[in-house]
């Protein structure tokens, strides 16, 4: 247990081989190795067990582990594929692969849909959407009256809920995103295109450890 020294080939719990992860994702083996350095850093930031806990995820995102954020919570839950409360290395790489510039748009659309499907009912419901907008406003410095929020949600449903049943299903979501491609902006992280160049120190370290 504990943080893994870069001088020993001893991996974090749930470690998966970079060549296997590379074959299943948009990353090369070198990029997976660079992500492993990032993973080790995040997963040992608070609880030194080589697994990313929610507090560590939020610390990495916000530099503050107490910063409550509905979407950081949701993203963490989606990364935690096994639903055991922590993110293992393989989960980290597979989930980040969806955010790769080269990942299929369909994967990005599906991930964003699951993110917004707060209660995991298979649809984005009207009150769910309003709840998300209100939570965001509460967590940020933005202020909008309840009337304005209601109008925005109403307008969004007029445009997105083609069947008019008060719920946005995956097909409706796909059509809505096609008309509003900016909704996928956050689903692509340019950093991932060549993470080994963006973080050369990671590559130096991984060459020592993993070759």
């Amino acid at each position: 247990m504990g943080c893994i020294s870069s001088k020993h080939i001893k991996h974090t719990p749930g470690y998966e081989e970079p060549n296997i992860l590379a074959s299943e994702t948009c990353f090369t083996v070198n990029e997976v190795q660079a992500l492993y350095e990032l993973f080790k850093k995040i997963s040992c930031s608070i609880i030194k067990d080589g697994l990313i806990h929610k507090e560590e995820f939020q610390l990495a995102l916000f530099r503050n582990s107490n910063n409550k954020n509905l979407f950081a919570d949701r993203v963490f839950d989606l990364f935690d594929i096994k639903r055991n409360g922590v993110i293992e290395f393989g989960e980290f790489v597979r989930s980040l692969s969806v955010f790769h510039p080269g990942a299929p748009t369909a994967d990005k659309i599906a991930f964003a849909f699951r993110l917004y499907d707060l209660r995991q009912t298979g649809c984005i419901e009207r009150d769910e959407l309003k709840e998300m907008v209100l939570a965001l406003l509460k967590e940020s410095d933005l202020t909008l009256s309840d009337d304005v929020v209601e109008q925005i949600v109403e307008k969004t449903f007029r445009e997105a809920d083609a069947k008019g049943d008060g719920r946005i299903d995956l097909d409706e979501w796909k059509d809505f995103v096609a008309k509003n491609p900016s909704l996928l902006k956050n689903m692509t992280l340019p950093y991932l295109k060549d993470i080994t160049l963006a973080f050369p120190s990671f590559v130096t370290n991984t060459e020592e450890v993993d070759v």
């Binding site: 916000f62 530099r63 509905l70 993203v75 917004y116 998300m132 956050n186």
Partner: peptide, 25 residues
Amino acid sequence: SQMNAFDIISMSTGFDLSGLFEEPD
């Protein structure tokens, strides 16, 4: 407003994962 509810939500920092890749100060 021309923005829809999802535009507003996507402005949330929690939906922007770029912080994961930034070195701490």
